[in-house]
Design a protein around this nucleic acid. Structure first.
Lengths: 134, 134
DNA sequence: ATAAGAAACAGGAATGATTATTGTTTTGGA
DNA sequence: TCCAAAACAATAATCATTCCTGTTTCTTAT
């Protein structure tokens, strides 16, 4: 009842493309993928809807790699592996609680990848911004 | 002995600026900071040297936030907290091994920040790229 | 059903961070 | 000192993303 409807077919197509593609696509990749079925789709529409979904908490950004922002519709707790060469992004079903024991070895064994480094970033509102209270 | 010398005063200035500033600066911020002392410094020189340092493993990228890449000269294992409002970046002296117990509460208590989410990303070379072996 | 207002859209221009290019200056070794 | 390589300034070019304008589609109340 309290669910707001998505009014637009194109908006829903953008959302579905992310999970269908499953490859943590960029805006451009989503656009290219959908253009086949929706010839009058515009890249601006993809960008606009991506930012709508981000604000809704329906998708999240995995980060910017090789100059392009990459998106994920899977909001469950999981990590990612980013290939530094081809910028493929793989889901890693590890959560923070499971990280303590030899993550690298596990990832390398299960994904055949060579982990060179990892980054842990927290997002939120810092102390000084909380003071401003806008 | 095997240490390669930095041939350029400007190159060294760029490196020192990152640790002096300590705020995980962007290329632009480094440039603005140095321009006072080095009026004939060019932004291109900052970018060029940043990529040299990245390849050398002397600095690392914390990520791209608000469209700008942010850099860190502290190569030791630690995490970061990114303010979603002002894009300040704070060092978090937690490593992966310490993550399992109530990270959020600890960060909130010690930094007065409100942690809304976190992201864990691994970097390396994926299985299919390793096959190509270039 | 339909008119009015709101939301969504396409197309294209604008922005802005980063990268590439070109010609010049500096550097360190022969 | 001289030469080749590295570094540089200045500026043009890229390219992902955002913004703008006018148009279309949707929603709701009449």
């Amino acid at each position: 009842m309290s669910e707001k409807r998505n009014f637009s077919a194109k908006r829903e197509a953008v959302y579905r493309a992310i999970s269908t593609l499953g490859s943590h696509p960029s805006a451009e990749q989503i656009y290219e993928y959908l253009k086949a079925d929706i010839p009058d789709l515009s890249l601006g529409t993809v960008y606009r809807n991506l930012s709508v979904f981000k604000q809704n908490g329906k998708i999240r950004s995995v980060g910017v790699f090789n100059g392009q922002e990459r998106f994920d519709s899977d909001m469950s707790a999981h990590s990612h592996f980013v290939c530094e060469r081809c910028y493929a992004i793989y889901d890693i079903p590890f959560t923070a609680e499971m990280l303590e024991k030899s993550i690298r070895e596990q990832i390398e064994r299960e994904y055949g990848a060579e982990v060179k480094s990892h980054s842990i970033v927290f997002y939120g509102i810092c102390r000084s911004c909380k003071k401003v209270n806008c």
